[in-house]
Nucleic acid binder design. Structure first.
Lengths: 179, 179
DNA sequence: TATTGTTATACTCTATAACTATA
DNA sequence: TATAGTTATAGAGTATAACAATA
């Protein structure tokens, strides 16, 4: 049974409200030297899932031209390196330089300390709840947004389809208890 | 005592992740006829806090020129009306037209049904947790972002300052129990 | 023929600066 | 002098289309 329409409406409004607040923060204090917020996100994604550019674009949820432009900028600043993939000479392998890792670290530390000051009245449990709830919401929207390939018409269902992403099937209590 | 740096980092990453997911949804399915997402937000804010344009801009967190442009667009589409404020002839009072209310309703209903389908596996408690956590986070960031006027140096503190926004001082349990 | 990446172009949303009108 | 609103301009971030090189 779906969630109540009133709850859905409320959740939508809260999410848009959060986005507005974050946008205000972005313009006021999320810059880092030459780097815009988007490039900072690319930097972090490289650190986490670095590798082929095309995969990075998918993980960032942006088109190839957008990533290309950001990588060119980051390379120009000496923060990332691009090398042709020896196994597929069309592709690139992307990695942070020493300077890139340093810059990312500064960005992260700065954000963390700012957030810590904003959450001065919070306790660990509250933070854990927020992390969990937002993660679950992102997962739900991601699987919803994912354009499921058009339902196979008149074809017997494949025996083994895409791995049944175990993602977020925990209840909140289980997930919290597992910390 | 502030939240753990690890929790803060995790929360930051989850929030950016949510923003990415929502951006993907925005480009794929949040349009409504001529209206972009920003104009839809203006429409809703008018419905909730309609009144003086300058106050709307503040609540939306955008600059006056941005709101002016959106209002011009919405007025051109026949969705909002602007009248000079009789009490202050510099200002405008903004309100939805009949068509504007109808359009907003369609937008809301559409979003709600989409979100309900995305949250197919959720229960009411989970939704309530997400609403609460996201609202608390927005509040915390908003008060942090609010440029507190520079601490009065060498001046005796005002007897009555800005009302001590009671905002979110409930614990999660209290807030949930109050539903 | 499909995929990786780049360049060119355009769109959305935003801000700052300069202006008019009113207070 | 300060505030409400508009217009002009610029910037960040994104997408689509057309292209080159490789598979």
């Amino acid at each position: 049974m779906p969630v109540d329409p009133g709850s859905a409406r409320e959740l939508i409004h809260r999410v848009f409200d959060l986005q507005r607040v974050i946008r205000c923060l972005s313009t006021s204090e999320l810059k880092h030297g030459e780097l815009g917020v988007a490039s900072q996100g690319v930097l972090r994604m490289i650190a986490e899932h670095g590798g082929r550019a095309v995969d990075l674009a998918g993980q960032l949820g942006v088109s190839a031209p957008v990533l290309s432009r950001h990588l060119a900028e980051l390379e120009g600043l000496g923060l990332v390196e691009r090398h042709r993939d020896p196994e597929d000479r069309r592709a690139q392998r992307v990695a942070l330089t020493e300077a890139g890792a340093t810059a990312l670290n500064e960005i992260e530390e700065h954000r963390i300390s700012r957030l810590q000051s904003y959450l001065a009245g919070w306790d660990e449990e509250q933070a854990a709840h927020a992390i969990l709830a937002i993660g679950q919401l992102s997962d739900a929207l991601r699987t919803g947004a994912r354009p499921m390939r058009p339902a196979p018409i008149q074809s017997s269902p494949p025996v083994l389809q895409t791995p049944p992403t175990p993602q977020t099937t925990q209840t909140q209590e289980e997930a919290l208890a597992a910390r």
